[in-house]
Nucleic acid binder design. Structure first.
Lengths: 148, 148
DNA sequence: GTTGAAATTCTAGTCTA
DNA sequence: TAGACTAGAATTTCAAC
């Protein structure tokens, strides 16, 4: 994706995914149908991979979040932790990382009690050690990748 | 937010924020207008804080991501790192955390070269030490908070 | 919450440069 | 090929019940 118009469109959409085609077309300076065609292409190209509603974690009863670094107990064993952990819906993100740990998870739970249960379940499920870093406050997150 | 209908609605919306009111109304079992009214309330209540388009980081030229833990150089100084760092648009998230570091950042950049520059800028801007953990592979992220 | 009708938006076919 | 135009379908919106 190098086309400057596509970049402007992706920027506009990532900042306001609910904008109507008419609003986008005004912002971009193209007709509604041109915007629609480009948007469809961005979606089918996989540039826009999806849309997400951002919910307030506290409002939905998950005020506690944490990073969990995990390290396989037995490095000689085949390691499919991400797959094994996928059913745990408290896990919002799973990355493999360079450094001390093998993977970094980001999780959201209702309480310390639930975090403990989750950590234990992660350990059992994936046969790993964990190192948990609790989030005390979130200043910002979900900031758009593309700046204006 | 305890109302079970609101929870179902928030769940449905978080899984498909582009669903039409008609689709949601069918899934929820309420009329279109009732769904619209509840949705508006969820938005104005701050339960739904926003919407986001998810872009493919590689497609938009930011294939490299990393966690940066930061620690103030001088713990006796007033610490407003999140505020100081906010203008750096490569930073997607900023949390204060318990543990060794004071803050955890998640950043996206175009290249190792750019990551180096960003880390240096973070250090300079906020007068902090940093510990960077590079992401090698992302298995999943942006998973909805509310499971069905 | 529901209904229903008007306004807006989306969609897709067609035309033009 | 990309954009513009247009008519018909779908959706959103909002009043009245």
């Amino acid at each position: 994706m190098e086309d400057p118009v596509d970049i402007r469109l992706a920027t506009a959409v990532s900042q306001d995914p609910r904008a109507t085609l008419a609003q986008l077309s005004e912002r971009i300076g193209l007709s509604v149908s041109a915007v629609q065609a480009r948007l469809k292409k961005l979606e089918s190209n996989g540039v826009i991979t999806g849309y997400q509603a951002i919910l307030d974690p506290e409002a939905i009863g998950k005020p506690l979040s944490a990073f969990i670094e995990i390290t396989p107990l037995d490095p000689s064993q085949p390691d499919n932790a991400p797959e094994l952990l996928e059913p745990l819906t408290a896990i919002e993100a799973c990355h493999s990382v360079a450094g001390d740990a093998a993977y970094m998870l980001f999780v959201r739970v209702a309480s310390p009690r639930e975090l403990e249960a989750l950590v234990n379940e992660v350990r059992r499920t994936a046969s790993v050690n964990t190192r948990t870093t609790v989030v005390l406050q979130t200043f910002y997150e979900h900031r758009p990748i593309l700046a204006p």
